[in-house]
Design a protein around this nucleic acid. Structure first.
Length: 251
DNA sequence: ATGTCCGTAACCTACGGA
């Protein structure tokens, strides 16, 4: 069972890349973030032609998350229950696993109201995760948080910046406190394994990246984690997303 | 080097967001 998470940075701009990706890899479930589409524009038929059922929670210009599955799909939830909620959370039952695609708010800067919203959002996510911890669950997506300094190309560049603050890291590690496992770190505790590189400043070429796209497995799934890899080939193609797909293989 | 890319509104360029 291969589960992939990918922030595509607009599914409208990236459909050819996503379609090619699903045609050339062995993907059972794709968790998508930043579709930047409303539901009417989402390419349901295009996914169906490739053999995937889909569940999209769209918004329009911003955000938007989706699940595409070729192992069955039953809709579970499209909301964390926040007031005036943005399209950042979608959950489905696919085969024998519950998968959740998340697009955690960016935060913008430590003094921005969006930062407080980010922490509140993560608190709600941890509460939701706690209710599901006894099940077989994968929570994956763009967390917009680098869990440790190992996940940052140069921590000196992130002093007083978002994505690395103690509060953000605590809010994400709440998942570990509940019992969820960061799949990448279970298979490799010492490699940076960056998943995102800024489009600017030749960041990819210089490997100035962050590991912010994470796959969290519930305790019952942890023993089934077989491999995790960052699909750098996709990041090196023409017109890539700024995020690479990250794949998890479960036994 | 605020150096790129995306969607939108409004127009052939700017802006907010990331």
């Amino acid at each position: 069972m291969n589960i992939v998470t990918w922030n595509v940075n607009s599914l409208t701009a990236r459909w050819d890349r996503v379609s090619n990706f699903l045609s050339t890899r062995d993907v059972d479930i794709l968790l998508i973030q930043e579709t930047k589409q409303n539901d009417a524009k989402f390419p349901t038929a295009g996914f169906a032609e490739l053999g995937y059922e889909t569940y999209h929670v769209g918004q329009g210009q911003w955000n938007g998350v989706a699940i595409a599955s070729r192992v069955g799909l039953e809709r579970v939830s499209g909301s964390l229950g926040l007031p005036d909620e943005e399209a950042r959370y979608v959950a489905a039952r696919c085969g024998d696993i519950t998968v959740i695609s998340v697009y955690v708010p960016n935060g913008r800067s430590l003094d921005n109201p969006h930062y407080a919203y980010k922490l509140d959002w993560l608190e709600h996510l941890a509460r939701d995760a706690a209710t599901r911890v006894a099940d077989d669950v994968v929570i994956a997506g763009d967390f917009n948080v680098a869990p440790t300094d190992l996940d940052v190309y140069d921590p000196a560049d992130f002093v007083d910046a978002t994505h690395v603050s103690d509060a953000e890291r605590r809010a994400v590690s709440a998942l570990a406190d509940i019992g969820y496992v960061d799949a990448q770190r279970q298979v490799d505790a010492t490699s940076p394994a960056f998943t995102w590189w800024d489009y600017r400043q030749g960041a990819y070429r210089r490997n100035r990246g962050l590991r912010i796209d994470l796959l969290w497995c519930s305790p019952s799934l942890a023993p089934r984690i077989d491999a995790v890899w960052v699909d750098r080939e996709e990041r090196e193609e023409e017109k890539p997303s700024d995020h690479a797909p990250v794949a998890l293989r479960l036994n």
